[in-house]
Design a binder for these strands. Structure first.
Lengths: 138, 138
DNA sequence: CTCTATGCAAATAATTTGCAAGCAC
DNA sequence: GTGCTTGCAAATTATTTGCATAGAG
């Protein structure tokens, strides 16, 4: 059985508040990752408005618990998506309109062709960064 | 023969000013990509101070001309490095101290092992994004 | 009742823009 | 001279922090 998001929250000593529930619900419904501002707007539309700060704090906390992924596309702001059983994946963003599409694969290079086939995008570039612990810090 | 940075500037209708020359000189000497603030500081130390705005504008312009790469490591700020004949490459950053090391390779997955061998880092994650033109925009 | 969460105000920080004066060509 | 550039001030935008109050367990 999979561990529910709620169990994870409880395990982290977190409470299930109304805004928190609403934020999670919105993330669940957003396939390409969305910005903090978007979450904030959708909360209002969903008649469950919450302060922007509350959104920031919740997203940061959810990321700490590993419940959401932070996605940076170098737009000057971060995006978030629920992890919730989804496979490890990446994204492709249009340089023209900003459209973001999920990629179901991961490796790279010949991958570019695959990405192009799969998304119909004309791939023009990619960004790849690794993160870890250097010899001094590990 | 390789095209010099100066020729590229001229071709772009750009002038070779003192701050611009100093910024390029600093970038040439910085192997891991550096932040705008760092460029600004080093300009001062090099007795060729320039306004922060000037640094921003020059880096943006140099990027437009393809003379420098913008590197985003999700730090809340961008970094830059000269292209200048260097091979396409990526970076690895330590989650502990922030140390950045250049990677001489590119593909991924089994790559992680290679990256670990090459850098002695304990790789914990990576970010990979593609950029291009979607069907509507291409 | 106790501790986490929220809202509001204000502070940071990165980056951008407007405009008049300066300098490269 | 003419147009690209710079410096300075000010505006924007994203994100964070402090603090008193509200609400979950």
């Amino acid at each position: 059985m999979t561990i529910s998001i709620f169990d994870s929250l409880k395990a982290g000593g977190k409470k299930l508040t109304k805004p928190r529930k609403a934020i999670l619900a919105i993330l669940e419904r957003s396939t390409p990752p969305i910005t903090v501002a978007e979450v904030h707007e959708r909360l209002k539309k969903a008649h469950a408005p919450a302060d922007l700060v509350t959104v920031y704090r919740n997203l940061a906390m959810l990321q700490e618990l590993g419940l959401v992924n932070q996605v940076g596309l170098h737009e000057g702001q971060m995006r978030y998506e629920v992890r919730h059983g989804r496979e490890h994946h990446h994204h492709i963003q249009c340089r023209g309109c900003g459209l973001i599409v999920d990629l179901l694969l991961c490796p790279l290079k010949k991958l570019t062709e695959l990405v192009e086939q799969q998304t119909k995008f004309a791939v023009e570039g990619h960004a790849l960064e690794f993160f870890g612990w250097c010899p001094q810090c590990r």
